[in-house]
Amino acid sequence: MYGAVIVTATGKSEVLIENYKGILEYTNEKIRLQTKGCQVEVAGSCLLIEYYTNDEMKITGSIHRIVYDP
């Protein structure tokens, strides 16, 4: 599906999110992103955005949950 969000999780310490639209919320425990059709919430502790560009973002830290909110 064109434009759908791609979430690539490596272990529990690294998540790469592609095709996101914007950052809604960012704290050490929670990162909420707007994507096409839903919101993605990455929850954990000591979360750090290693880099982010227009369509790609890399999150590191200790990840507990990845939740899709409709």
Partner: peptide, 28 residues
């Protein structure tokens, strides 16, 4: 509105890395 700032940056293709949330502010 720091989140809006971050979104605008990504819209204009300004690279930001090592973005960290500290209490009440961001460091990058």
């Amino acid at each position: 509105a720091p989140e809006r700032f971050l979104n605008l940056c990504s819209n204009r293709n300004i690279l930001i890395w090592n973005l960290e949330y500290r209490e009440e502010h961001y460091e990058f």
